[in-house]
Simulated scan of single mutants.
Amino acid sequence: MTRFAMAVHGGAWNIPDELWAAHQAGCRAAQAAGTAVLAKGGDAVSAVCAAIRVLEDDPTFDAGKGSFLNERGEVELDAGLMEGDQLHYGAVLGVARIQNPIDLARYIMEHNQHCVFFGEGAEALAGPAGLASVDPHSHVLPRERKRFETYRDQPEKLNSGVWRAAHDTVGALARDQHGNLAAGNSTGGIPNKQRNRVGDAALISSGLYADNEMGAAMCTGWGESIMRAGMLHQALAQLKAKGDSSEAAQAAAETAVNHLERRVGGYGGIVVMTRSGYCGAAFNTERMAFELPSKDS
């Protein structure tokens, strides 16, 4: 049987002990949702979206419901999706009225000549996509309102370690039974970010990439440093050079994170998948929530 594989992440940061179990459980649930699609012969894009919807709906993570708030106390959600056969890609940036931004990213990828939409222009596509608009406040939790107020009133806390202390960006990689790859990410950004700031997560070649001829990868962490260091590019270059094995996947992930830290002092993590579905993961924060396929699957 052709190998299929499903990997997910729930963010790289200093996840406290009291939140660790919820992060692990959320990643397992998302991986199970995506794997169920693949096991029935479903395609990689559908599997990635199924997994990310679980994570967007789980208030544990910084994506969809429970996202961090910007400097105005508002949500601004980004999501990106790419498939590895024809290299189609779609993304939405800075949306607030979409329950599952990954679904709108998929609509753009599959039905629009353009790849990326932001703000009101992106939200206007919800109707044609058959997606209901939601109240932006439905994404806001009391926990995040309290976090927002703390950083607003004590900005020194925001400037001393937020890059390591708050990254719940979520994502998924999949390989289906036909050998097609897909990658997706979804995020609410960082706490109290400047309005309209965009990180790496939803951006092609920065936060995610999928190519059946090369492999796939997704990043999480301090977006500015990830973009500057080209962490994802480093991983894919390693995959191309070292081949298609679990060892190659792990080496690619570790090389990319080491480059991130050495070149720009960045923090984050990456999950890598080879053409055949072998996976590796690495991070330089205290923890990263993720689930990889078993080596026997």
Results as ranks from 00 to 15, higher is better:
residue 25 A to V: 01
residue 115 C to E: 08
residue 284 N to Y: 14
residue 250 Q to V: 07
residue 113 Q to N: 03
residue 60 T to D: 01
residue 28 R to M: 11
residue 68 F to R: 01
residue 17 D to R: 09
residue 210 A to K: 05
residue 6 M to V: 06
residue 178 H to E: 15
residue 27 C to I: 07
residue 281 A to N: 04
residue 74 E to A: 10
residue 117 F to G: 04
residue 162 V to N: 08
residue 106 R to Y: 05
residue 81 L to D: 02
residue 188 G to H: 09
residue 29 A to V: 03
residue 204 I to D: 06
residue 165 A to Y: 07
residue 17 D to Q: 14
residue 39 A to C: 03
residue 247 E to L: 12
residue 48 V to S: 09
residue 294 S to N: 12
residue 32 A to N: 13
residue 161 G to C: 12
residue 10 G to E: 06
residue 102 I to R: 03
residue 98 I to T: 15
residue 72 R to C: 02
residue 32 A to L: 10
residue 216 A to L: 05
residue 217 A to S: 04
residue 111 H to A: 13
residue 237 A to T: 14
residue 36 A to W: 02
residue 154 Q to N: 14
residue 16 P to E: 06
residue 52 I to K: 02
residue 54 V to N: 00
residue 260 L to K: 01
residue 92 V to N: 00
residue 68 F to C: 10
residue 148 F to L: 06
residue 133 S to G: 07
residue 98 I to N: 03
residue 290 F to P: 06
residue 41 G to N: 11
residue 102 I to P: 06
residue 117 F to K: 01
residue 62 D to M: 00
residue 45 V to T: 12
residue 211 D to I: 01
residue 118 F to N: 01
residue 274 T to F: 13
residue 258 N to T: 15
residue 95 V to K: 02
residue 90 G to P: 05
residue 69 L to V: 00
residue 273 M to I: 00
residue 188 G to P: 06
residue 209 Y to C: 07
